[in-house]
C-alpha cells in the first residue's frame, strides 16, 4: 500500500517535469505538443479510493497549467477523464473489472490501446473545445484533436512498453 503511494508520487512528479520540460517544447510541425501526462490516469491502480483519484487528477492538471500558462484547461479536462474512467473501463474490459484479481497487465493489448485511446480522445476534446471556445473554429478543434491525439497515443504507447507493469 505504502509502496503504491510512493510510486504514484514519483510518477506524478516525473510526468509533470517530462511534460513541461520536454513535450511542451516539442512543437512538432509547429503545433503538436503531445500530452503524455495522461499516462498517470492510465497507470493509476484500479481499486483505489475514487474521490482521492479525482482530487489527485485535478491537482495534476493544475500543476501542468501552472507551467504552461493555460489557466485551468488541463485541470478541467483531466478531472473529466478521471471521473469517467470507471465507465470507460467497464466499456473496454467488461465484467473483468469487477474481479479482485484484475490487473491492467493481464488484459489484451487491444483492450489496453482502446482504453488509452478513449482517455486521450475525451481529454483532448474537452481541452481544445475549452481552449478555442468557439463553434466557428470547429475545424481547428477537430484538426488539433486528431493530430495531437494521435501523437499523444503513439508516445504513450512507447512509454507504456518502456515502463511496462511487471508481468506476474
Amino acid at each position: 500500500m505504502n509502496n503504491s503511494i510512493f510510486v504514484n508520487i514519483i510518477r506524478f512528479v516525473l510526468l509533470v517535469l517530462v511534460q513541461v520540460l520536454v513535450f511542451n517544447q516539442l512543437n512538432f510541425f509547429g503545433f503538436i505538443n503531445p500530452m503524455v501526462y495522461i499516462l498517470f490516469l492510465y497507470w493509476y491502480p484500479v481499486k483505489e479510493n475514487r474521490a482521492a483519484f479525482i482530487g489527485l487528477s485535478f491537482i495534476l492538471g493544475l500543476a501542468i497549467d501552472f507551467f504552461s500558462d493555460s489557466m485551468a484547461l488541463h485541470a478541467a479536462s483531466t478531472v473529466t477523464i478521471a471521473y469517467i474512467r470507471p465507465a470507460i473501463m467497464r466499456f473496454v474490459f467488461g465484467v473483468n473489472i469487477e474481479f479482485q484479481s484484475f490487473r491492467l497487465g493481464n488484459s489484451t493489448k487491444a483492450q489496453q490501446i482502446t482504453f488509452l485511446a478513449l482517455l486521450i480522445v475525451v481529454h483532448h476534446l474537452v481541452f481544445f473545445t475549452l481552449e478555442i471556445f468557439s463553434i466557428a473554429n470547429i475545424l481547428l478543434i477537430i484538426k488539433k484533436v486528431l493530430a495531437i491525439g494521435l501523437s499523444t497515443l503513439i508516445l504513450c504507447l512507447l512509454f507504456t512498453s518502456l515502463f511496462s507493469v511487471k508481468k506476474e
Partner: peptide
C-alpha cells in the same frame, strides 16, 4: 463523486472563462 467532479470542474471552468474575458 459526481458532486466532487462537478465542483472541481466548476472551479477550473471559472478560472478559464474568467481568463477569456479578463487578464490572466
Amino acid at each position: 463523486h459526481f458532486l466532487l467532479y462537478i465542483f472541481l470542474l466548476m472551479v477550473s471552468l471559472g478560472f478559464t472563462i474568467q481568463s477569456h474575458s479578463y487578464h490572466q
